[in-house]
Structures are given as C-alpha cells and as structure tokens.
Amino acid sequence: MIFPKWTNQIPFLIPIGLALVGGAVAAGVTVYCTPKNTRVGYQPVQPVPFSHAVHAGQLGVDCRYCHSTVEKSWFSSIPAASTCMNCHSLILKDDPRLALVRESFTNNTPIPWVQVHIVPDYVYFNHSVHVARGFSCVECHGRVDQMDEVHHAKSLSMSFCLDCHRNPAAFIRPPGKVTDLGWQWSTNAAEAAKLQEVNGKNFVHDWRVESLQSCSACHR
C-alpha cells in the first residue's frame, strides 16, 4: 500500500483550498485589475516641468487658454509651443527649464508630453458636449489647478462615467463656471447642496441634457 492512513484526511482539505484560491483570485482581480488601482495616482515625469498649480492656480490662466479646442472639439488639445512662447518669449526667456519649449518652437518639433488621462479606443468621449453643457473639468481631472505635476485623480472607469450619466443633475453647473475648478454654489455646504439640487434639475431640463446610458452612446 502506497498511501499511509492520514492521507484519507486530504479530501476534506480540498474544498477549503479551492474556496480559498477562488476567493483570493476574485478579490485580487477586484483590487488589482480595476482602474482604481491601475489608473489613479499615475503621475509620469513630463519632459518640461510645467506646473499647473502655478499657471492655472496662482496666475489664474483659464484652462481654455492652452486647451483651446475643448469647447469645440471631441478632443481637448495640448498647446503648441507657440502658445507657451506667447508669454515665455518675454518671461523667463533664458530659463534652462524651458530649453525644450524653445527648441520645439524654433525647430517646429512637438514636445514629447506624456499623456496622463486616456480613455481606451473602444470608448467615444466628446469634450465639447460635456463642457458646453456645464460639466466642469474638475469632475474628471480633479483639482488640476492645485497640482504641480498632473496626476490621474479619478478612476475614469465605466461606472465612474455612468454615475454621472445616471444623475447629471448632481454634477451640472453654470457653463461659465466650468473652468473655475474651485467654484461652489455657496460656501455653506448645506446650501450648496440645495442649490445644486434645484438648479441641477432645471439645467438638465432646460438645456436638454441627454445623458445616454445605452451601450452605443460610448461604445460606438
């Protein structure tokens, strides 16, 4: 006989082991494979140490000054070097940190920015339609005006999109305030919530916000 007596106990351990392994795999996938883990906090080193906190926060440059197509196009443009040079031909003219910008400007070569926020190819996302209907940059990109170097603040997962699509009234704001990332209805939190509720509903109705939930709204 090849097996000793204690081996008869093994069968009872098998289901426990299987349950543990199965549970661990499912939990592992939930934690490690989804955008909350894979995307949030992503902060690549950019070729030029551009600070949004300085430009958009301290200096108060409007988002649309650089990302000029955001209201008109599905794509929010990355500024060309010439946009930078509007100011930097006068300010910090010879700063070594801006060498790449100047080089780009003179040679007509793009600056190799690293894209931070990206939706997969199978997702259709249109910036203009969101911005024009009063959905602020901050909803998806976070407080970029406080970031020295931009990082991925929100998960941009499917449920993230759908949370808003299911209840746009909770996120909509006056279109003029879209690029004012710190804007609130009121400094009083309770009052702000109340105003959001009342106005949000009206805005959604008046501006005919059709936040589609069908698959082909995004996966077209």
């Binding site: 006989m1 081996t7 069968p11």
Partner: peptide
C-alpha cells in the same frame, strides 16, 4: 457520487 462513496480514500485495508 464521491461523497456517498467516501472517495477519495487513498488508504484502504483491502489494498493490503
């Protein structure tokens, strides 16, 4: 089937 037959049971007196 396995449970009613008490399988797997690697050690069995008959195997001697």
């Amino acid at each position: 089937m396995l449970a009613f037959n008490e399988l797997p049971r690697f050690h069995h007196p008959l195997f001697t």
